[in-house]
Computed example of a mutant assay.
Amino acid sequence: MTGRQARRALGDRVLRAVGPLLRSVPRDHRETDAAFRRRRRVTGVVAVAGASLLGVSLSTKPGSPRFYGLTLGVAGTWVAGGLASGPLHLGRMFGPGGQLRRPVLTPVASGVGAFGAFYAAALVARRIPLMERAIGSVLRYADQGSTPLVATTALANGVAEEVFFRGALYAAAGARRPVLVSTAVYGLATTATRNPALVLASVPMGLLFGIQRRITGGIQAPVLTHVVWSSLMLRYLPPLFADRLAVEERASSAV
């Protein structure tokens, strides 16, 4: 086999592997105009309430009962709003042979890939004082808190955000660019934290989650990707900012 034939064969295999990811699954669920209007009203109220709680939760002391209570309250708000807005769907994606199946392996791989991209970006960000402080301000909640509680609240919020933003809010956007609308509202909600690192992260991740929602027609893919990404970020990012976290801990102890 010549080099040209080998490259063509490799290209064909890549296209066969990636092809199913580029095909949107046909929608098999519709709702009445009244249900759609109700979904929009509910998501509007919950978006404001959840964003407000999110901002308050990240202004509390790391590791405090108030922090954990508020953080779980944020997750509860997103989930309650998502379920109250109307039916949600897990979604499906095309597998080998064009068969439809629940998305599992691809979302997990997407979560790992997203973490890799963010880890590479963090290597650069830690050399930028503004970004180093912003990331350290967030990671101190993981560094100074109880590991099981931090993991529980972080993963609960990851699932809850997808239930609301890629479930209820995405559906409420209708046919008018739901990926962009859900990402924009996700980013606006994150601005309540007043943390530039979180706001910047919400845009590419919101787009990724939104595209997964569009392709699969449901929330299972973005939920799995979000959980995997969050787990890896919690595990491997704090050691990268150890010096900054030491400064944060000294500042917290002095208060």
Score class of each variant (00 low, 15 high):
147 T>Q: 07
147 T>H: 05
147 T>F: 09
149 L>N: 03
150 V>F: 12
151 A>I: 11
153 T>W: 04
153 T>I: 03
154 A>K: 04
154 A>H: 09
154 A>M: 11
154 A>E: 06
155 L>M: 12
157 N>L: 04
157 N>S: 02
158 G>Y: 04
158 G>N: 06
160 A>I: 11
160 A>S: 15
161 E>A: 14
161 E>Y: 11
161 E>C: 09
162 E>F: 12
162 E>Y: 14
162 E>V: 14
162 E>H: 14
163 V>N: 10
163 V>A: 11
163 V>G: 12
164 F>V: 01
164 F>G: 00
164 F>K: 00
164 F>S: 01
164 F>Q: 01
165 F>H: 10
165 F>E: 06
165 F>V: 11
166 R>V: 10
166 R>Y: 08
166 R>Q: 13
167 G>M: 02
168 A>L: 01
169 L>Q: 04
169 L>M: 05
171 A>V: 13
171 A>I: 13
172 A>W: 03
173 A>I: 13
173 A>G: 13
173 A>N: 14
173 A>W: 12
174 G>I: 02
174 G>A: 05
175 A>H: 14
176 R>H: 15
176 R>E: 15
177 R>Q: 04
177 R>M: 04
178 P>E: 01
178 P>I: 00
179 V>N: 06
179 V>E: 05
179 V>A: 07
179 V>I: 13
179 V>G: 07
181 V>C: 10
181 V>T: 13
182 S>E: 09
182 S>H: 10
182 S>A: 15
182 S>V: 09
182 S>D: 11
183 T>C: 07
183 T>Q: 03
184 A>L: 14
184 A>Y: 06
185 V>T: 00
186 Y>G: 15
186 Y>M: 15
187 G>P: 09
187 G>K: 08
188 L>H: 03
188 L>F: 06
188 L>T: 06
188 L>D: 05
190 T>S: 11
190 T>K: 07
190 T>A: 11
